[in-house]
Amino acid sequence: MRPELDRWRARGSYFDHGGHRIFYRREGSGPALLLVHGYPFNSYDWHRIWCDLTAHYDVIAPDMLGMGFSDKPIRHRYSVFEHADMHEALLRHLGIEHTLLLAHDLGVSVTQEMLARRLEDPARSPAIDAVIFLNGGLFIEVYRPRLVQRILESPLGDVLGPLTPRPVAAAAVREMFGPGTKPTGDEMRLLLEVLFSGNGRFVNHRVGRFNAERKTYRERWGEPLVRNIVPMRLINGPVDPNSGAHMAARYRELVPGPDIVSLDNIGHWPQLEAPQAVFAAAHAFLRRHAP
Rank of each mutant, 00 (worst) to 15 (best):
L119F: 03
L119T: 12
G180H: 14
V168D: 02
Q149R: 07
P179C: 05
S125T: 14
R117K: 14
L138S: 03
E141F: 04
P122K: 10
M176D: 08
T164H: 03
A169I: 13
V148A: 09
Y143G: 03
L134P: 05
R150E: 13
G161M: 00
G161R: 00
G180W: 08
E141C: 00
L115Q: 11
T184F: 01
V142C: 03
P145R: 01
P179D: 15
R124W: 07
R117P: 10
E153A: 15
I128D: 06
D129F: 09
V142E: 04
E120H: 07
A123D: 14
L195Q: 02
A123G: 11
G178C: 05
D129L: 02
L152P: 06
M188E: 00
P167K: 00
R150G: 09
L115C: 02
E193V: 04
G180I: 03
M176S: 14
F196D: 05
L138C: 01
V142M: 00
G157Q: 02
V142R: 06
A130R: 09
V194E: 11
E175S: 14
Y143E: 03
L119K: 13
F133D: 00
I151H: 07
L134R: 10
M188L: 13
R117A: 11
P165S: 03
P155D: 09
L156H: 05
Q112M: 06
I132W: 07
L163S: 07
M114N: 08
R124I: 10
E193I: 02
T164G: 08
A172H: 02
L160H: 06
M114R: 15
G180C: 04
M114Q: 03
G185M: 07
F133Y: 15
Y143S: 14
P122E: 09
F177E: 06
R124A: 11
Q149E: 15
E141K: 07
S197W: 02
E141Y: 11
R146N: 10
P155E: 08
E113H: 15
G185E: 15
A127C: 01
G185H: 13
P183W: 10
V168L: 15
I132V: 15
S125N: 09
L190F: 05
T184Y: 04
V159C: 04
E175A: 11
V194K: 00
A169R: 11
L147A: 11
R174D: 09
L156C: 07
E153I: 12
L134N: 12
E193M: 01
R117V: 11
A172E: 01
V194F: 01
E153F: 10
E175V: 10
I128P: 08
E120K: 12
L160T: 03
L191C: 12
P155T: 11
V131A: 01
Q149L: 05
P145Q: 07
A172Y: 08
L190T: 05
R118H: 14
P167I: 02
A130V: 02
P179M: 08
D186Y: 14
S197V: 05
L147G: 08
I132M: 01
E193C: 02
E193L: 02
G136D: 01
A170P: 00
G185R: 14
V159I: 14
P165M: 01
P165I: 04
S197G: 07
V194C: 11
G185F: 02
V131L: 03
L115I: 10
P165V: 08
R150V: 10
V159H: 06
G137Y: 03
N135A: 11
V173C: 13
P162E: 00
